[in-house]
Design a protein around this nucleic acid. Structure first.
Length: 425
RNA sequence: GGAGAGGUGGCAGAGCGGUUGAAUGCACCGGUCUUGAAAACCGGCGGGCCUUCGCGGGUCUCGUGAGUUCGAAUCUCACCCUCUCCGCCA
């Protein structure tokens, strides 16, 4: 049961409707939800009244039996109440499950600072770092460079696994590992995150908790015949980490840097980015995930985004930051910044991180709350996450931005100690 | 994979089929006492949903789900999880 309380608040409802419109989503779902919620309340009430009657009568029976009296009449009337209640409950259950299904289809309310728009063309560029690098030769795409250097093998990967898989070989594999270590060290030693290696498989319930389901059921790998899924991102296990728990306010914020492989079926993206490492079924990522006090989530959103940006800054890669517009922002996010890195081989920008504030959208689904310091009812935490960064795409950016005319790759300064080399040739 | 034990409130730990949301202890919060603190004493102390302007009332919740019963934390079944021993394995 999610979201009901908010939707009963008139002013919230008003802004929520505006938000739905800005997203371009179906408003009729909301109308149905409001109707069903009303029905749900009425049905709950009548069931509870009946149950109360029944309980009282049962107590009478208990008394009578104890004192050896006959309770035949009472027992008969309880019997008939029971069937009445059963019918009411079945009816209620229909309403409730219908309502639940619809509630899962309602997207998060977007934040007021999110620009209106329909597609990624309407996203608002907030800032850029560095400048588009100039080359004295024509820069090659990463897969050309990498294949020539023998640090990636797509052909054998397609034989062994299929399309959208790769073998990283030698310095390629090591570069991937170096980048992962560099990011994790930065986030744990300087940015205050706790390092996590989460499970790569989660159960059905966890997939609903992050808001991946039911909408994106197609995009994940399902283990046949089992209620298990390969994680499309570490966001899945991490958002569920405190599922069903009530934390203390003093426990907040909780900041995690989770390193994991990610698995995506990429159904529906056939023909897109078929070359190279851009869109693989399996890739590595360091995911930043935080649980914070609701009053601090927007401050935290900037912090987290800055932490992700710092990786690119230290690697001296040109990138820009945009706020996703209302039509482009994901289902569960209230606000989202995309970090796009410059790829000379493509002569364009590529998303390398997506930093979202979910406010309490996910927290409601996973039921993660905290007890306020001064006492009072538990409140939902706010959750945020962002790639810090996608490792495979970072490797691509390094290959393309640090390529030399002779086909070698210069190693960025900060990675040299991890790689034990200053050039890959 | 085989054999056994167990899952009760923040923790520890009782619980006979009958008014038990659940004894007791600890922790926590408020108060008395104290210069202050401790100790002692008194009181309070889970969450969801429905209802109420509020006080309050109702209902659900003792791993999860179904069932037996007028009535289930207590009985039955299935599932999940934890622990111990054996086997296997990185």
């Amino acid at each position: 049961m999610i979201y009901i309380k908010n939707l009963e608040d008139d002013s919230y409802l008003k802004t929520y409707k505006e938000s739905l419109r800005a997203r371009g989503s179906d408003e009729s779902v909301l109308e149905k939800v409001l109707m069903l919620n009303q029905a749900r309340k009425e049905k709950t009430h009548s069931i509870e009244m009946k149950k109360n009657e029944q309980k009282k009568l049962s107590a009478v029976i208990g008394q009578k039996k104890k004192s050896g009296e006959d309770a035949e009449a009472e027992m008969n009337s309880v019997q008939s109440m029971k069937s009445e209640i059963k019918a009411l409950e079945e009816d209620f259950e229909t309403t409730r499950s219908e309502l639940d299904d619809l509630l899962m289809q309602l997207p998060n309310k977007i934040h007021e600072s999110v620009p209106e728009g329909r597609s990624d063309k309407d996203n608002r560029v907030e800032r850029a770092h560095g400048e588009v690098p100039q080359f004295s030769f024509k820069p090659q795409p990463h897969y050309e460079i990498a294949e020539k250097l023998g640090i990636v093998d797509f052909e054998r990967a397609s034989k062994v696994s299929g399309a959208r898989f790769s073998f990283l070989m030698g310095a390629g594999a090591r570069l991937e590992r170096a980048v992962a270590n560099f990011m994790l060290d930065l986030h744990t030693e300087q940015n205050g995150y706790k390092e996590v290696l989460p499970p790569y498989i989660v159960n059905t319930e966890s997939m609903y908790g992050t808001g991946q389901f039911p909408k994106f059921q197609e995009d994940v790998f399902h283990l046949e015949g089992l209620p298990y899924y390969l994680i499309p991102t570490a966001e899945a296990p991490m958002t569920n980490y405190f599922r069903g728990e009530t934390l203390n306010e003093s426990d907040l914020p909780q900041r995690f840097a989770a390193y994991s492989s990610c698995f995506r079926s990429e159904a529906g993206s056939y023909g897109k980015d078929t070359k190279g490492l851009i869109r693989q079924h399996q890739f590595e990522k360091v995911e930043l995930m935080t649980f914070v006090h609701p009053d601090q989530s927007y401050e935290e959103h900037d912090r987290l985004t800055n932490n992700a940006e710092e990786v690119l800054k230290r690697l001296e890669l040109h990138y820009r930051v945009s706020t996703l517009c209302s039509g482009d922002i994901s289902f569960g996010a209230a606000k989202c910044y995309d970090l796009e890195v410059w790829l000379p081989g493509e002569d364009g920008y590529r998303e390398i991180s997506s930093c979202s504030n979910f406010e309490d959208f996910q927290a409601r689904r996973v039921n993660t709350r905290f007890k306020p310091k001064g006492g009072g009812k538990p409140r939902y935490v706010h959750t945020l996450n962002g790639s810090g960064l996608a490792i495979g795409r970072t490797v691509i950016a390094i290959i393309e931005n640090y390529q030399q005319e002779d086909g070698s790759i210069k190693v960025p300064d900060v990675l040299q100690k991890y790689l034990g080399a200053s050039i890959i040739r």
